[in-house]
Computed example of a mutant assay.
Amino acid sequence: MIATVTQILFIFVFLLLLLGALLVVSDAGARRAFRIALHRRGARLRPPRYAIVGDSLAAQCDWRPLRRRPFDVLRLCLGGATLKDIGAQIVEARMMGARCFVIDGGLNDLLFDAAPLAQIDHDFRALLRRLPEDARGVLMLAPHVADAAQAPRIDEMNRLMRALAEARGLAVVDLAPQLSQDGARRPEMTDDGLHFSPLAAKLWVQAARERLLRDGLA
């Protein structure tokens, strides 16, 4: 017996929902790829509640506390991302309808690319211009690393990024008091001097969520 069009559509939708459910409990990369693939095929998905854009610090965090329903959180953050890369992540997120962002970045530019402050200023301004006009969200300032000698440069970058973000209407969160002491990351807050320990990652997400709640965005 030949299946009717309605039956075929029902089976397709069922399989799609089943695949989505499996990916909900899978890794973030699979969920991201699945959502992007659906978007590019023209599927009418509910826009993500939050887009997480940034580098490895954001990528290693568990953002599920922000989620109310599956696919509420769109994670585009990637290890090694520079400010230019994060700007591209924002473009991808806004194509999917994202209007609320959690943003981090800058350490790769500063520490690994040895970018001067003028370059960081230029690239961060360009990043902000890629946000939707009605965008809201939180900028997570770059944390200190284990090497206290880097603190003055990180602080200088953070002052610049804070001023630009606040002028754009974004909230700013600085976790330096919790994560570092005398300009150096606390030993319990890092596994390698740069990245987060599980405790630091938890505090990072909690601080972002609390600020979103305060601003009526969660």
Rank of each mutant, 00 (worst) to 15 (best):
L16C: 10
L141D: 01
I90Y: 07
V138N: 08
A118C: 03
H195M: 05
R159T: 04
V145H: 11
E133A: 15
R168H: 11
I120C: 15
A171C: 05
A148Y: 00
P187F: 00
A149R: 15
G29L: 11
R129Y: 12
D123P: 06
L19R: 06
L19S: 12
A167V: 01
D191R: 14
E133Q: 14
L131P: 09
V25T: 13
A81S: 15
G183P: 10
R168Y: 05
L110Y: 02
P152K: 12
D191H: 05
L22M: 13
P187H: 03
V5N: 12
P177E: 02
P187G: 10
H195E: 03
R129T: 08
L38R: 14
R94I: 00
G79C: 03
G87K: 02
A207I: 04
L117H: 09
G97Y: 04
P198I: 01
A51T: 09
A114P: 00
D55F: 09
R209C: 01
R186W: 07
I36H: 03
V102N: 08
R159P: 02
G20A: 12
R94K: 14
A163C: 03
V205S: 12
V24Y: 14
A118Q: 12
R49E: 07
L131T: 03
E188N: 10
A43D: 00
D121Q: 14
C77S: 15
W204D: 01
M140W: 03
E156A: 15
L9V: 10
L170A: 08
D182R: 11
I2N: 09
M1W: 04
A43H: 08
I154W: 02
R75G: 08
L38E: 04
D174N: 14
V24G: 04
V145L: 14
M157P: 10
V73C: 05
L107S: 13
